[in-house]
Design a protein around this nucleic acid. Structure first.
Length: 524
RNA sequence: GUGAGCGUAGCUCAGCUGGUAGAGCAUCGGUCUGUGGAACCGAGGGUCGUGGGUUCAAAUCCCAUCGCUCACCCCA
């Protein structure tokens, strides 16, 4: 076995792809009824787009993207001339950094020292791509616009699609469109993480975004309503209405039911204040925390709330909750979102420990977990991201959206089917008619009839070479054909074919004219 | 990046404390040259993940390496 799919990617074979198509088709139909249009996006973008939107410090950007340069970008291994160019930049950057013109930042400083080291070494092939990539990133991330434009050719496979949607929104002036702009997308994303159950390096998402001037809570609620409508249509077991109780569960908690968790994580005004309160509270209990959480107190205190460690749960329960520290505007917005959800009969559980990983989220956040998955049991995550479009250079715009992890949704559906004992045999390709022909005179006839049937919309299999009759019928059976159409010398002479229904073996004689009607009639 | 478990036929797996590979399913052929599902007979398909070591002898023991899986980190 010489070649195999690379780590974290996989083939989806016909036995499974039928379900995939059904799920994606359901999304298209449901989203269309809510007025969403499909946007087909490129699979790669300028690295910087993701760096800005997702956050340069995030794991996604700092180490999980598949990045590469374009032909007209900088060469993979710098030549002497390029080095001269680098040296100039670095001098400029160094001076700007010392003067404080570039924001002081540990990450950037590290990049800069890597670059300096690299330059001292000269164009040594032994240094390889990895260091060079960091040089590129370093240059791309911290520099003034003239330098940035020279490194703008560093591209990345998209790790998510919200940034692309916003980019497209800006690029095509969609803010001039009437009403809110509602878009959905379906397709693969790429993250270079260690694979595990429900987590792949090429994974698929179905997502939707609403962009426009309004941040009315009813928009949030309608987005979630649509999502739940989709899950229901897709056949995911749904949660019973439990109302505004605070589940207090960390998002990874296992439940047997599909569950919608919601939270508000505040805005630029109130969140930083809360984070400081949280950090202060955590520092008090620092000794009760494990290493991972201790580190997070510094890097991202909100993440401590995500901890699954049993020994940390007691501490976490006593921490300040963001819902109690929201500013008036955010509290009001959140309250209204909940009302709107109840109005729509959407079952939800509040979860104050639900925090989002990406920088751009604010206010409403939500996540849906489904049964039958492993540790990665979130099938959907989303939230509001007012200001993201602006951050990317567009007009002031409100936004909210979600992304469904299709791989996980499929996994959960398959798991449910397995438990109901339904999913024993993988679905065969639909096959209506197998043409069992024999004798050289029958072959042209078989080809003609196949064409006619196919034009009528039936799926037809014609053996490419003559088979023994018994084999032929046997193959029809194994392929799961509904009918075998028998054409031999007798049939040609008689002008009538034998149409055999394989489920019960009943056979009738039909002329060419009657054939389509006959197949259609007994097709139920 | 970290940890654990696992790599034997297309698939699921057996192979006990070393004696140089097996089953079931699947595939193909035959019994069966105009009627499928069954039965019976037969065939193909494996450098036992790879490389090294111990040994007269390694799928089996040891080391290394690669791959897969699950979990952590992070996140959909």
């Amino acid at each position: 076995m010489k070649f195999q799919a690379i780590k974290g990617v996989r083939d989806i074979l016909p036995a499974e792809s039928a379900l995939w198509n059904r799920v994606e088709q359901t999304a298209r139909e449901v989203f269309a009824t809510y007025g969403y249009g499909e946007i087909r996006l490129p699979i790669f973008e300028q690295t910087d787009l993701f760096a800005r939107s997702v956050g340069e410090e995030s794991d996604i950007v700092s180490k999980e993207m598949y990045s590469f340069k374009t032909e007209d970008g900088l060469p993979e291994r710098p030549s002497i001339q390029d080095l001269a160019g680098f040296t100039d930049w670095v001098k400029k950057v160094d001076i700007a950094y010392e003067r404080g013109e570039i924001q002081k930042d540990e990450y950037f400083e590290k990049q800069l020292s890597e670059i300096k080291y690299f330059l001292q070494q000269g164009p040594d092939p032994g240094l390889g791509w990895e260091v060079y990539r960091r040089v590129m990133n370093g240059l791309a991330f911290g520099l003034d616009d003239t330098v940035r434009s020279q490194t703008a050719k560093l591209l990345s496979l998209r790790p998510e699609a919200t940034a692309s949607v916003c980019r497209a929104y800006i690029e095509h002036g969609m803010h001039t469109l009437p009403g809110n702009v509602k878009l959905y997308y379906i397709g693969p994303m790429f993250r270079r993480e260690r694979p595990q159950k429900g987590r792949y390096r090429q994974f698929y998402q179905i997502g939707a975004e609403v962009l426009g001037q309004s941040d009315a809570p009813a928009i949030d609620a309608e987005v979630i309503e649509m999502l739940m409508a989709f899950f229901e249509r897709a056949g995911l077991r749904s949660a019973a209405l439990q109302g505004g109780k605070d589940a207090g569960l960390k998002p990874g908690a296992t439940t047997d039911e599909t569950t919608l968790y919601i939270n508000s994580i505040g805005c630029k005004e109130c969140r930083p204040k809360y984070v400081e309160k949280l950090r202060a509270a955590l520092v008090e209990h620092i000794n009760e925390l494990k290493a991972d959480s201790q580190r997070r107190v510094e890097t991202n205190p909100l993440r401590v709330l995500d901890s699954k460690l049993p020994e940390e749960q007691a501490v976490i329960e006593k921490l300040p909750r963001i819902t109690e520290h929201l500013c008036d505007a955010c509290r009001e917005h959140y309250g209204e979102v909940k009302k709107q959800l109840e109005l729509r009969g959407v079952a939800y559980q509040e979860n104050w420990r639900l925090v989002r990983g990406l920088d751009y989220y604010m206010r409403t956040t939500f996540e849906i977990t489904a049964p039958g998955l492993g540790a990665q049991n979130a099938v959907c995550g989303g939230g509001r991201y007012d200001g993201l479009v602006e951050l990317l250079g567009g007009p002031a715009t409100k936004g909210i959206g979600f992304a469904i992890g299709t791989d996980r949704l499929i996994l959960s559906l398959q798991e449910a089917a397995k438990q109901q004992g339904a999913g024993g045999t993988p679905a065969l390709q639909e096959l209506d008619v197998f043409i069992a022909w024999m004798g050289a005179v029958a072959q042209p006839e078989a080809v003609k009839i196949a064409r006619t049937l196919r034009e009528a919309g039936f799926s037809v299999e014609v053996p490419a070479e003559e088979m023994k009759f018994k084999k032929s019928i046997g193959l029809a059976d194994k392929l799961g054909a509904r009918f075998a159409l028998i054409i031999g010398e007798n049939e040609i002479a008689e002008g009538k074919y034998a149409l055999k229904r394989l489920s019960d073996g009943v056979q009738e004689k039909v002329s060419a004219d009657e054939l389509i009607a006959a197949v259609r009639r007994s097709n139920e």
